[in-house]
Nucleic acid binder design. Structure first.
Lengths: 147, 147
DNA sequence: TAAAAATATATCAGAAATTTATATAAATGT
DNA sequence: ACATTTATATAAATTTCTGATATATTTTTA
């Protein structure tokens, strides 16, 4: 028996499917700066909250501690982040994003906004309005996911 | 002067931001099967449309031809895809997803649907309704991105 | 229609990124 | 103080990727 779902009730499976698609489209959007996904993800995390401990970064990315340490070393070599000691804990290191690192994320973001804008032009005003109305909810969903 | 945007007009920058967040959350959702992002992306593409030529796969993924050839070789070794000649073009190869490969994607999808469902539980009924109303538009956005 | 150009894939060598295991140093608990 | 836990680093082995080049077919064109 089909569950008698409310018209406004959200079909999670459909949402996941749409989201999976959009994610892949999003990711394969070509970009000038050639950086790996993990690298960008770390930089992006830092662009929202810097500084962070290595251990905090490890929690957000789906890779090993060793990989993060080495990745941060590469980012530091390229001037995109800086390691500084944590004054409150001698074991820890605080990773700070540099202006250069922030500008990499910024320019990518700008690039992507333009690409998404081009896609959105293809939608009807009604479709755009629907997404606009859902935006606060989508933002909150992201917050829940980060918690 | 601030552009006097309509209440229902979609702010692309905000959408891109929310989407960027959701993408990262989505991707770092831990999973039983440990496969690289590119590997999963190829399998996922094939789960929607199989068979495909290598050259078609190259177009959808953001990597070199050499990387795809090698990746498909690994997938074939693991029994997730099969290479067969293209009857209409002697140069080409058609990559078919196997039942095993399809089930990898399926089980990941199921896993993720459950994880997303858990997040969605944290939303209010109104928020869920808003996303539900936007779902057709989001799906169409994905279609536009695939074109 | 034979030769040249383009297309589709494969291979190999080297570079880059990642995992596993282990090490070091500082903080915490007993 | 000593053992344990936490935070990061390092080294070696492995995996994956890029770049260059090769091969086989198709398409173009002269």
């Amino acid at each position: 028996m089909e569950p008698k779902t409310n018209f406004t009730e959200l079909n999670v499976s459909d949402f996941a499917m749409a989201f999976e698609e959009l994610t892949r489209i999003f990711i394969r959007m070509p970009s000038i700066e050639k950086l790996s996904f993990t690298t960008l993800s770390v930089l992006h995390t830092l662009s929202l909250r810097s500084p962070m401990r290595l251990s905090e970064l490890i929690a957000t990315e789906q890779v090993t501690q060793s990989a993060i340490t080495q990745l941060v070393t590469r980012l530091e070599r390229d001037g995109l982040v800086e390691r500084r000691p944590d004054p409150s804990d001698g074991r820890a290191v605080l990773v700070h994003i540099t202006p250069q690192g922030a500008s990499v994320i910024d320019s990518r973001r700008t690039e992507r906004i333009m690409q998404i804008a081009r896609l959105i032009e293809g939608l009807s005003p009604g479709e755009r309005a629907a997404i606009a109305s859902a935006l606060p909810a989508l933002t909150r969903l992201a917050e829940l996911g980060n918690a």
